[in-house]
Design a protein around this nucleic acid. Structure first.
Lengths: 152, 152
DNA sequence: CCCACATTAATTGCGCGCAATTTAATTACG
DNA sequence: CGTAATTAAATTGCGCGCAATTAATGTGGG
């Protein structure tokens, strides 16, 4: 039979549409800060540790330079960070927060609170779900899984 | 204090990076079918019920015409579906599968199997996670949550 | 009948996300 | 040394995803 898979059965679609709903929920919260959601993620990474290379940021967020380079240039234009070539290794570009970029974390503190409210979920529940997703993500990333046709 | 939120604490980032990992896992599986993941979702919707309008497909997938119109045009070009104005309401565009598009569901049947393998998770676990995500998604969509600044 | 309003797609503009390629700098090796 | 291999970013091209606008069709009220 091998009937077509059903949309409603798919974890993948659930994750896909949940992510888009999150993005839409973040938008009005981040707009006053002048940030998109991916830009907000980069700022989170920098608020945790300033002075990282593009590569380090990319490893943290699982993004490559094709995505990060133009994004970082926009954040530089806004004035939240600076991009400088490394001194001892000129291949690297090191990202530093400006005072304005650092100051932004104060305003951003309200964002996750508002999001938690919008989801109306408990901390334990959120934490469990988060671990679950990260576990599956890493399995997908490691696996590649080769996808050979299984012997029946 | 209102210290900056931590990336690792965020359900949102977990969902975000899980979705991207899924996309990357789907890519090699869907490439032989000539589909991207969003295109695959549209095909899923059509395999369930042929002859839907753009609006109906969009409601199912939570996508608007700005996304769907060019995507459907690509699928039309490939030859998997046709786009025709409705007869009784000429505002609507009705999407019909071609024979080739219908036949594709056979080949696509392997895809979710391979994905399930790559995640290495149990059916019950998957189902639970899926319901969880859909619940939170709908809360986010309904809420809008107004995000008024709380009175401290 | 005509006009205001609503509905459906299409269009435009912008920002990801990623594969593939290019450029420049560093490292390893003979 | 000097050349090949490696690494880090940048660039190019394409397909979403969505806000905002536009165009065309349908509906209802005076």
């Amino acid at each position: 039979m091998t009937s077509a898979p059903k949309l409603s059965d798919q974890l993948c679609f659930a994750a896909y549409s949940f992510t888009h709903a999150l993005n839409r929920a973040y938008r009005p919260l981040l707009e006053p800060l002048g940030l998109t959601y991916p830009q907000y993620l980069v700022m989170l990474v920098l608020w945790e540790a300033d002075g990282q290379t593009v590569k380090e940021i990319g490893e943290r967020l699982k993004l490559d330079s094709g995505t990060l380079t133009p994004l970082l240039k926009r954040l530089e234009t806004i004035g939240y960070l600076t991009r400088r070539r490394g001194r001892q290794d000129e291949r690297q570009v090191i990202i530093h927060l400006t005072d304005e970029g650092r100051a932004l974390s104060e305003k951003a503190a309200e964002v996750p609170v508002a999001l938690g409210c919008a989801m109306g979920a408990e901390w334990g529940e959120i934490a469990e779900l988060r671990e679950h997703l990260l576990t599956l993500r890493d399995r997908l990333a490691d696996a590649g899984c080769a996808v050979g046709e299984p012997e029946d």
